[in-house]
Design a protein around this nucleic acid. Structure first.
Length: 422
RNA sequence: GUGGGUAUAGCUCAGUUGGUUAGAGCGCCAGAUUGUGGCUCUGGAAGUCGUGGGUUCAAAUCCCGUUACCCACCCCA
């Protein structure tokens, strides 16, 4: 039990962590290009924030939260998504008082109590962006463009962008009414889940994958026919902006998203071929969320992107992630005196920006060389009695086996030169 | 929460109709004339057979429970 990570969690060992570092590096570069700044919020929040922010009709709140009472008897929840905490922070620190828009991104673990499967864990990691204070469709288009730019940068191909508008507080009620009117005669044929959705949130019936429900809804009214003028124009503008950025998309009136806070734009980016959990990125506009959480009426838009699913997609497309080989010099020592000299020299190298290490196990020369080879050092510096006497070090290139005798005080210059030549 | 599959060494997996000290490949460690890696050869370490119970003279093997992993449903990243 104590030697097993909890269900749905994973260790990230050194032979994989380089992939994450790479992704994070690209994310930070792209967000900078789009002028987004990093925000880091707590791993847990008051449960009430998610109930209000995410919505108490959502599956997340109803059955997937890691909720517990702390020693002060506060109800605490591990963040199940990234938006609510960011919104809370935006309000708490009065960020609506500074120059708008406020554009932020985060990379954070999120927690959901679900049954694990391919591309779904109980702890996973999301890269997300949230942009507050901008009502224009250009902002919606910008976040979609940001996600696509990231995917392109990573070399991904064949992703599908689905967009839709789910209207606003003005026009959505009319549509919900229309949906109820339509489904009223089909209640007997809908799945149990959809029957309860009929009252709670008929929008979600459009989301159901049940065959019968799919068939029934094929003639259901389309939200796009119900949009008010404002939402209609906004959706058209979004499409114009996306086209201007040469982003291919598909209008899919069936995507509605599982979180309650969305208004107007919703979108998903799908990756075929990574199994059933194929939504890599999802988001949209949430003009009512900040006020719902107790702040001033503030428009906003954002998305969440699953890092694990992104890695699955990269793997699926056979994309090699560059492994930064940072191991440069290994000192091979013969005898105690050589060890202490090596310790001195290798620290000089490190201070001068050259990665270096030495044997810490007291192994034979042969074993030390073998180690250098296995671990992937570029050069081996041998120190034995001969070298100590002459004040030199034997530097061997592990690529071609070439070996030279270098004065110890010239070592840094020599390695630096060799690095440049590589 | 529901359904199906799986569980043997660090990894990938063999293991017969139940029958002695549970095997292989890869990896790891050491050695092949005492200061030199990759190839080869030799040797070594490493497994409570997921876990608890049951049947049996005898269980990795058969039965039941349980946990975990994989896949799928619901939903989502």
């Amino acid at each position: 039990m104590i030697t097993k990570a909890p269900r749905g969690t994973k260790d990230l060992l050194p032979d994989e962590s380089y992939k994450w570092q790479y992704i994070e590096r690209v994310i930070r570069r792209i967000t900078k290009l789009f002028c987004y700044m990093e925000i880091r919020t707590p791993t847990f929040e008051h449960t009430e924030l998610f109930v209000r922010g995410v919505g108490d009709t959502t599956d997340i709140v109803q059955k997937e939260m890691y909720t517990f009472f702390d020693k002060g008897e506060r109800s605490i929840t591990l963040k199940p998504e990234g938006t609510a905490g960011t919104v809370r922070s935006y309000i708490e620190h009065g960020l609506y008082n500074i120059t708008q828009p406020v554009k932020m991104y985060y990379i954070t673990p999120v927690f959901r109590y679900e049954n694990p499967q391919a591309g779904r864990l109980r702890e996973h990691h999301q890269f997300g962006v949230e942009a507050f204070g901008g009502p224009e469709a250009s902002l919606d288009a910008e976040i979609i463009t940001l996600a696509i730019t990231l995917f392109n940068e990573l070399g991904l191909r064949g992703l599908e962008v689905d967009i839709n508008s789910i209207g606003c507080a003005n026009c959505r009620p009319r549509y919900l009414e229309g949906l109820r009117e339509y489904f009223k005669d089909h209640l007997d044929n809908l799945c149990n889940n959809c029957v309860s959705r009929y009252e709670r949130n008929p929008l979600r019936i459009l989301d159901c994958k049940n065959e019968r429900c799919t068939a029934i809804r094929s003639d259901a009214p389309i939200i796009l026919d119900y949009l008010c003028e404002d939402c209609k124009v906004h959706f058209q503008e979004l499409q114009q902006y996306l086209s201007a950025a040469s982003i291919e998309f598909k209008v899919n009136p069936m995507i509605v998203r599982g979180l309650d806070y969305y208004s107007k734009t919703v979108f998903e980016i799908l990756s075929p071929g990574i199994g059933a959990q194929n939504t890599v990125c999802g988001g949209g506009r949430y003009d009512g969320l900040v006020s719902e959480c107790g702040g001033p009426k503030t428009p906003g838009a954002g998305f969440g992107l699953g890092i694990e699913r992104l890695l699955l997609t990269l793997e699926n497309q056979g994309i090699e992630i560059p492994r930064s080989s940072t191991k440069e010099v290994l000192f091979v020592t013969i005898g105690e005196k050589a060890r202490s000299k090596a310790f001195e020299l290798l620290n000089n190298l490190r201070v001068n920006g050259i990665s270096a290490d030495m044997d810490h196990l007291g192994r034979s020369v042969k074993a030390q060389f073998k180690y250098a080879d296995r671990v992937g050092f570029s050069w081996v510096c041998t120190l034995g009695e001969d070298e100590l006497e002459s004040g030199t070090v034997s530097v061997r290139s592990m690529d071609d086996g070439r070996e030279e005798s270098i004065p110890q005080n010239m070592l840094i210059d020599y390695i630096t030169g060799e690095k440049g030549a590589k």
